[in-house]
């Protein structure tokens, strides 16, 4: 864990809470000024010098507050550029993983693309965006690279996997926030003469909800540990898939607990659940990661699966 984690999370928690519900231009300006983009850039290169545990902590808070600005994307982009020794341009840098839309692409000054072992940095004037919106109403733009790259470098990082990790981290926060809203609601909403929380059926559903939030929390943290170790492809595939399962199970419960109130645009729940539903598909959906992980496991063989899993945690003990 980086020494500055508490400082970092205190700052992020305060800022993101202030920015809740704020539009992109306001939110992004403040996120950028706070310097979060260089979270993973080493201190001697002018960055924060954080680790993936720090990234998880900050992205979790972004998800928890339904932050309406990109954060994972510039963090990953700056990380990859610093690793490649390419100077980062000013402004928002987003990411283009193979076959994926570019979050907030239309607002980006530049886009980092990684495919076939090569990182390419495209300035905005080399990109053409087909603009669209995510289920949560965030810019989700398809990109064509119509100009030449400003810089290229060899890169062995799986950008899709890093994006997937980011969504797991954000989902862990969003699930907690949705759970907290549901707890508050069932504890205060009185029907049939008592608080909803007094009904066993409600308690059982809320317990199930908590289990799904717990599963995403644990898997996100395990991914961050593996990323800090240096290899996390197995963990991220499993965690992104588990996050999809959790969204599948938990989002309906969150809405069931709230009744019609939770379905309105002004109530906070939809900002969380619409994001969760979108993130489930972003950077590889359930089927993609299930097949990728399943093929990998099939290659390991029956007992090989256990041996691989055990070795992957034993290496952390070292």
């Amino acid at each position: 864990m980086s020494d500055n984690r508490t400082l970092l999370t205190d700052m992020a928690a305060g800022l993101f809470a202030d920015l809740a519900g704020k539009p992109f231009d306001v939110a992004w300006q403040q996120v950028a000024e706070a310097g979060f983009s260089t979270l993973l850039v080493p201190e001697d290169a002018g960055g924060f010098g954080g680790d993936w545990g720090d990234v998880l902590a900050v992205l979790r808070l972004a998800g928890l507050n339904a932050l309406g600005a990109p954060l994972a994307e510039p963090v990953i982009a700056h990380y990859l550029l610093a690793k490649a020794g390419i100077a980062a341009p000013e402004g928002l840098i987003s990411i283009a993983a193979p076959g994926q839309r570019v979050p907030y692409g239309r607002h980006a000054a530049a886009v980092v693309h990684v495919e076939g072992g090569t990182l390419s940095l495209y300035h905005a004037d080399a990109c053409t965006f087909d603009e669209a919106l995510s289920p949560a109403g965030e810019p989700w733009d398809a990109v064509s690279f119509t100009g030449t790259a400003a810089a290229t470098a060899a890169c062995d990082v799986d950008l899709l996997a890093l994006g997937a990790f980011a969504r797991v981290a954000q989902a862990s926060g969003a699930l907690e926030a949705a759970f907290t809203l549901a707890i508050d609601h069932v504890n205060t909403r009185v029907q049939f003469g008592r608080a909803l929380a007094k009904f066993q059926a409600v308690q059982q559903a809320m317990a199930e909800f908590s289990e799904e939030a717990a599963a995403v929390d644990a898997s996100a943290a395990a991914c961050a540990e593996a990323l800090d170790y240096g290899h996390a492809s197995f963990e991220i595939a499993a965690a992104k898939l588990r996050m999809g399962i959790a969204v599948d199970r938990a989002v309906p419960i969150a809405h069931r607990m709230h009744g019609a109130i939770g379905f309105t645009i002004e109530y906070a729940l939809n900002h969380l659940t619409r994001r969760l539903m979108g993130w489930r598909s972003e950077f590889g959906g359930d089927a993609f990661w299930a097949e990728q992980l399943g093929r990998r496991v099939a290659g390991l063989g029956g007992h090989g699966l256990w041996r691989e899993m055990a070795a992957r945690t034993d290496r952390l003990v070292g």
Partner: peptide, 28 residues
Amino acid sequence: VALIDAVGPEPDAPTAQLIGRLTAEMWT
């Protein structure tokens, strides 16, 4: 273990997905 061994190193897509899903839950 038996499922993985029975389908071999190159399963079809639905079976690979099933193994992936069970692995993801078990890993978590």
